[in-house]
Nucleic acid binder design. Structure first.
Lengths: 255, 255
DNA sequence: TGAAAAAGTTGATCGAGATCAAAAAAGCCC
DNA sequence: GGGCTTTTTTGATCTCGATCAACTTTTTCA
């Protein structure tokens, strides 16, 4: 594959075009080398990555879309244990022996699978790239830890509020219009938060009744009262206890 | 600090004496340098690491004991979002701005806090050490992800079974005596699994009634039927549905 | 070692969210 | 764009685990 092809393949990928992401940190030679030893792949909702596909290409970088790790219990209960998005790099080497989760696309997804050898070489030789990948993995770990905290003790409304804030954290806020993109379906959201789709639906309605946010569509909400949203997510019972009568909740000026 | 002192300080530490762990992978010079730029610390139950202590020494390696990340909600609910043990290396650089968790010891703990500069240098220069730290962080991430799956949809008995198996995974099995060390208290266990201490207590009793394990003490259980324990943890309702009458559950021979 | 404090267990009651059922909305495909 | 499927929402009921309270065991520390 020539250097020209490399450019063509990588130019449109977020990992290269966003200067904060992995491929943007590579030297020309490294990018060329990695490009020669990688395969892009488009997935649609429900497509999974497993078995040979994973053992040969265990390093997965996400260009676009949302990928989940799903755990299936024997009686059919399903859990989405983690969500990965643009810029995330998954290292699935030696993962099959302990982790039961499958990698499933939650919509249209573009990924790039890298040969572990070249990836490892770059990690060893390019401190700057290493730092980017390390910080990404550390973020993955802490996101998972925070998520555990969210689903362990919080109640339905609080989980939803936390999720909206998590989405807000992960996306650039364009201007001050607080329109937050919800990148997953209601069913997936329910599975991610450990609740039922019915409860998710009721929860959003409740938040809407409290005047905290507007549900613009299934794919977006508009935050109307960020302070209250934060307090609900933080488990402030003074806010929760009012039963969601429109406009009638306690107005506590400062937190 | 002389090279002799270095030896004295590090000789008794698991990170050095266990050949699979970080400090054992260092060259003599690196170990010396890191030792000069690190501080050991003994903690007792309830001691926390935060503020200046963390921003100056954000790399924390665990020699012995159990350390938790705790999240506190505004009405007092507490969650243990993650557990860290011997060999784990925590990178808490830039963590204060997004993560609300505090680092709390759950018993007697020995840690070693490292200067980020020396740590980063070793990461950049010693591929072998880098690999060990990388794999440890990856394990932390996947442990957290698996834990999310455990607490999201599983019911009380299944969570407990999963936890016992998690403990089993993390400790060397000595011979075939299936005695598993439970390194945390009941309250902490409850907070980690997102349930109440009462429910933990009832759960262990239930598992005992089913003949799956014996509760030897508050600190150890003995697995009597590993296969059933696995199936309960996996959400097999055929096993769960029998209401825990001693010896009367369905005996399904194979998987 | 023994008394006080903390942690854990057992029992009884209650409620948030699961579950079941059915209608409404959104997405899809020819 | 209209008929089809899939997803989401709404309503009614039920259940598992939370909560409250009393008791027992373990740990702590003088």
């Amino acid at each position: 594959m020539s250097s020209h092809d490399v450019k063509k393949k990588c130019k449109s990928c977020a990992l290269y075009s966003d200067s904060k992401l992995f491929c943007a940190s590579l030297s020309g030679n490294e990018l060329c080398d990695l490009s020669d030893h990688s395969r892009t792949l488009s997935m649609k909702r429900g497509d999974t990555l497993e078995g040979d596909a994973l053992s040969h290409w265990p390093i997965v970088a996400i260009d676009d879309g949302v990928v989940s790790i799903q755990h299936l219990l024997q009686d059919g209960r399903k859990t989405i244990a983690a969500l990965f998005m643009r810029g995330d790099i998954l290292d699935l080497r030696n993962i099959s022996n302990r982790n039961r989760g499958a990698l499933v696309a939650l919509g249209k997804v573009n990924i790039c699978r890298m040969a572990p050898k070249v990836f490892a070489q770059i990690m060893a030789e390019n401190p700057n790239s290493q730092k980017i990948v390390w910080e990404n993995l550390r973020d993955q770990a802490f996101r998972a830890i925070d998520h555990s905290a969210d689903i362990a003790k919080k109640q339905a409304l609080e989980k939803l509020a936390s999720f909206v804030l998590e989405c807000r954290n992960r996306q650039e806020i364009t201007g001050n219009t607080e329109v937050i993109d919800i990148p997953v379906r209601r069913v997936d959201l329910a599975e991610y938060l450990g609740m039922q789709p019915e409860t998710v639906s009721r929860g959003f309605k409740d938040l809407e009744n409290r005047g905290v946010l507007d549900v613009i569509s299934l794919k977006a909400v508009k935050i109307k009262n960020l302070q209250f949203l934060r307090r609900i997510a933080d488990g402030d019972k003074d806010v929760i206890d009012e039963k969601g009568d429109p406009g009638s909740f306690k107005v506590l000026q400062f937190g």
